[in-house]
Design a protein around this nucleic acid. Structure first.
Length: 534
RNA sequence: GCCGGCGUAGCUCAGUUGGUUAGAGCGCCUGAUUGUGGAUCAGGAGGUCCCCCGUUCGAGCCGGGGCGCUGGUACCA
């Protein structure tokens, strides 16, 4: 057969889950990374750039398995070691801190940005390589550090063009979740993990969905059956009530009710430090209740939750921590319009040990087909007190945040807040091939004046193609100099933006008369263009 | 992994009850136009109809298997 004679050509395509970034996209992302870094830096965090490759052992969890060494990560074997591309920036930080802890200050505050890689099935908006921008504080257990990270996240979102009202930072605490699991008497690790995963889906599947998933299971919209956790009915009800705590508090606040005096349940608290602070603040709360009851929402939610974790020591501790965070943030002006205590926040099953949070965009976003799109969280983080311990054997508390830069960019794009057509360079056209040096000189003159410019390097035979090229590049102007103009030491400056506008309602003949073209002495070219480019 | 949808030109797709040389639009190239972007006109390049097996005189179309893509879901440090 003939086809056998034809060698198979190489396929020009990016591997699944990867993508190429062109001109404006690269510039935009860099601008966003710079903006984020500026805020991180201003908050006192130091830059850190660690290697993209780590040993699998340092990344943790994924021990080389003969059968599936690549599960989740891009890994390969080098001599006795398994190496892998980093899958986030937190695990490398733990390694760096453990390795250099004698030279680093404590607490160590660092920010990092760069691509991370995950060897997973890609989906819409999910790639196998993407950018993260992290800030972490290592070496302090203070809840103030967690609160600061949340405040900084708010400031950062504002900096990149997302204002209060366009997002919420939903905050929870793993200790509270553990407290609830304890309260419903769930000991089995696998079951506990499954319940947490289900709680995490509350937003997506709603109350009935969670009920089904905690019980017998449910059919999703594609018809696939998802196994349930198999909890008893009273256990399920407890979880549902837990998840509904915020809504219940909100309803109460809306009715103008509130728990009389925030200190009313002080006796139930376990953390003496928190109790002290709160007792002295009682008056402030009573004032808040009369002035601006909405501000009580987070605290009312916590009061609801307090009853639900019951006798669980760890649960009460988590609520105290949340209350302290909410209070710190509220006092700094980060109120419940942005900071939302939400019991359904879980953040995966990984290394988090205390406060967890994620930033979610609240504005509507439509995809190319106009369907409303779920964007999920654009940033998240929390406290991970055990991550460094793997290396040092000593407890090193740490907390931090990670911003998903690509997702954030995509959201801003879909929202139309970024991604305008990028301006192209001024194109110096080639009329006479043997005067190339002069065209280059004109170009050099423009570049010297800070104007982005280039000489046309395509085939100059057809002059129309040169303008077509300039058009495609989005050039603001084309410079034309034939022998006529050269003899008189002038150039033609063609205003391509104006020309394009005129072409829309002019006839071909009118348009071709070139009202957008002006003759300029070579000596005045820079000034003329500078005025034109404004 | 599980459930569904879809695989025909670079892209978006059409393709009749199975019938000769597989089409359109867009894009690309050449020319009308050796000093001017759009539009128009003329011409051109570009195809293993995802792969294999089967049914048939004959398969892009029917049957079986495989692969790929895609949407949802599961997992996600």
């Amino acid at each position: 057969m003939a086809r056998k004679d034809k060698p198979r050509r190489a396929r020009a395509e990016t591997p699944k889950g990867f993508r190429d970034y062109f001109g404006a996209e690269v510039v935009e992302r860099k601008a966003m990374l710079d903006a984020i870094a500026e805020i991180y830096h201003r908050y006192g965090f130091d830059a850190l750039e660690s290697s993209a490759v780590e040993t699998v052992e340092a990344l943790g969890k994924f021990l080389p398995d003969v059968d599936r060494p690549n599960e989740g990560v891009f890994a390969w074997q080098e001599d006795a070691d398994w190496l892998a591309l980093r899958y986030d920036l937190t695990a490398p930080l733990a390694r760096v801190y453990a390795q250099h802890r004698n030279e680093l200050p404590t607490p160590y505050r660092r920010y990092a940005m760069g691509p991370v890689w995950r060897n997973e099935k890609p989906g819409p908006g999910r790639f196998r390589q993407f950018y993260q921008c992290d800030a972490d504080t290592v070496g302090t257990a203070s809840v103030a550090a967690d609160a600061e990270i949340c405040a900084m996240l708010c400031d950062t979102l504002k900096k990149v063009g997302i204002n209060p009202g366009d997002y919420v930072v939903r905050v929870n605490n793993r200790k509270v979740l553990n407290g609830v699991l304890e309260a419903i008497g769930l000991e089995d690790e696998a079951h506990r993990a499954a319940v947490l995963r289900t709680i995490d889906k509350f937003d997506k599947v709603g109350e009935t969905g969670v009920r089904e998933l905690l019980g017998e299971g449910r059919k999703d919209q594609s018809g696939a059956f998802i196994d349930g956790v198999g909890l008893a009915n009273d256990q399920i009800e407890s979880v549902i009530v837990f998840l509904g705590a915020r809504a219940k508090a909100a309803a109460r606040v809306a009715r103008g009710e509130h728990t009389q005096g925030a200190g009313i349940r002080l006796e139930a608290r376990t953390s003496s430090a928190a109790s002290e602070r709160w007792r002295s603040d009682d008056e402030r709360f009573l004032k808040m209740a009369s002035d601006d009851p909405e501000r009580l929402l987070n605290f009312e939610t916590l009061n609801e939750l307090r009853g639900l974790v019951g006798r669980s020591e760890v649960g009460l501790q988590g609520i105290d921590e949340l209350e302290e965070m909410a209070d710190l943030l509220d006092l700094q002006g980060y109120g419940p319009d942005r900071i939302v205590i939400d019991p359904s926040v879980v953040r995966g099953l990984g290394y988090y040990t205390g406060p967890v949070f994620e930033a979610e965009l609240t504005f509507e976003i439509a995809d190319e087909k106009g369907r409303p799109q779920r964007f999920g969280s654009v940033a998240g983080g929390g406290r991970y007190d055990d991550l460094v311990t793997r290396f040092t054997g000593q407890a090193v508390p740490a907390t931090g945040v990670s911003i998903g830069v690509d997702r954030l960019l995509a959201a801003l794009h879909a929202k139309g807040r970024t991604g305008g057509a990028a301006a192209g360079p001024v194109i110096v056209t080639v009329m006479d091939r043997d005067r190339m040096a002069e065209y280059q000189s004109i170009c050099a003159m423009l570049r010297g004046a800070g104007i982005r410019a280039e000489v046309y390097f395509g085939n100059p035979k057809n002059f129309g193609n040169q303008l077509k090229y300039a058009d495609r590049r989005g050039s603001p102007a084309a410079i034309i100099q034939g022998s006529d103009e050269a003899a008189r030491d002038v150039v033609q400056v063609k205003d391509l933006v104006l020309g394009a506008k005129l072409s829309q309602d002019a006839t071909v003949e009118e348009w071709k008369e070139n009202p957008s073209q002006t003759e300029v002495p070579v000596g005045d070219l820079v000034t003329h263009l500078q005025r034109l480019l404004k």
